[in-house]
């Protein structure tokens, strides 16, 4: 009898320990958005930038007291996923690999909109004798594991008949990556133009001017539980965001100039985004460009062990209802065209 009581007590303890929902309780009327924030100032470019600068959020929500919190997560996309998993974030805006690996790992999120056109540059130390991707064989490459440039590296290696097994992966990011590259502790890695401009690195390959499949296609995602609880708030937030995107889409030069507030030089923004139409860069639509690229990515990720099981994004990821309604209400249904897999507008 005493034994049974003991066992029951232990069981109760176990339930108490495991059953206590980890993470943070949902605070009242606060919307928490997570962005990958490895470098630059904690400010957003483009759509969210205009929302911040023009107080669009405050305007929309002033009558009912919702506030917004922008979190720039140092550990980038994978860190945003952790925030979504432990309920410390409600929304995230991150790259194809983190979003798809999270969904494949069972994180319950829905993609509401697309965020296109992320660029990167494959850099080597200035005095390096690496000239082409093929020269990377056997070299130590700095990789921000789990982020979109990790996926990008797999793509470009594959184009050159190599795999991740042919290089030595060093998991690093941010300033640690920049330092390691300049000191020669690593031989190569994806980084930003600022390293080239400051004379600390040389570029051997870039996404700029290449097929859009090499660019980063982010999605703006929401935690499913939050969506179920506050569908109206999600829709209104999306509306605010689309208004910001609309402002960003009006004048390319103005928007690039505006984006320098994140700490990136104007010249670099022009180099990175100059070749693409502002409509393309600001379109939130989950169109063929996104869906086809994600479909291909899922196959690539599965083949390379980045995800262990695949899923159908049409069923398990995309939620277009809210964006469609918002575009209709703002009379912007035809402001942005749908783009195809090659990034070309589909003519009606």
């Amino acid at each position: 009898m005493k034994k049974t009581i003991n066992i029951l007590l232990i069981l109760a303890l176990g339930v108490a320990v495991f059953g206590a929902t980890p993470g943070f309780a949902q605070p009242e009327k606060v919307i928490r958005i997570g962005f990958p924030g490895g470098s630059g100032r904690p400010l957003s470019a483009g759509g969210w930038g205009y929302v911040q600068a023009k107080n669009l959020f405050e305007e929309e929500f002033k009558k009912d007291g919702w506030t917004i919190e922008y979190n720039y997560i140092k550990t980038a996309g994978p860190g945003v996923n952790e925030g979504l998993a432990n309920n410390s974030l409600d929304f995230g805006s991150h790259g194809d690999l983190p979003v798809l690996s999270a969904r494949a790992g069972g994180l319950k999120i829905k993609a509401l909109a697309a965020v296109r056109g992320g660029t990167s540059h494959l850099l080597v130390p200035t005095n390096s004798n690496i000239r082409t991707i093929k020269d990377l064989k056997g070299k130590r490459v700095g990789v921000n594991v789990g982020t979109w440039t990790h996926a990008l590296l797999i793509k470009v290696l594959k184009d050159n008949g190599l795999t991740m097994k042919d290089i030595k992966v060093i998991n690093t990011s941010g300033t640690a990556f920049e330092t390691a590259l300049t000191t020669g502790d690593i031989d190569a890695g994806f980084g930003s133009l600022s390293l080239i401009r400051s004379g600390r690195a040389r570029e051997i390959w870039t996404t700029v001017g290449r097929h859009v499949r090499y660019q980063n296609t982010n999605t703006f995602v929401v935690r499913e539980e939050f969506l179920k609880k506050h569908p109206d708030i999600v829709k209104r937030l999306l509306k605010v965001y689309v208004k910001g995107l609309y402002l960003a889409s009006l004048n390319k030069n103005e928007t690039l100039k505006f984006n320098t507030r994140t700490g990136t030089a104007l010249a670099d923004l022009v180099t990175d985004n100059g070749g693409q139409s502002i409509k393309y860069l600001t379109s939130p639509k989950l169109d063929g460009q996104v869906t086809q690229q994600y479909k291909d990515s899922l196959v690539l990720f599965k083949d390379n062990g980045l995800i262990r099981k695949t899923f159908d994004p049409e069923k398990d990821l995309y939620e277009r209802k809210y964006l469609d309604e918002v575009l209709k209400e703002l009379k912007l249904e035809n402001h942005w065209p749908n783009y195809d897999i090659n990034g070309n507008p589909i003519k009606k």
């Binding site: 994978p78 690999l97 983190p98 690996s101 999270a102 790992g105 594991v145 980045l306």
Partner: peptide, 12 residues
């Protein structure tokens, strides 16, 4: 384990 964490493979 580090890589699995970055790729959201909690099981690994």
């Amino acid at each position: 384990m580090v890589i699995a964490r970055r790729l959201f493979q909690t099981d690994v």
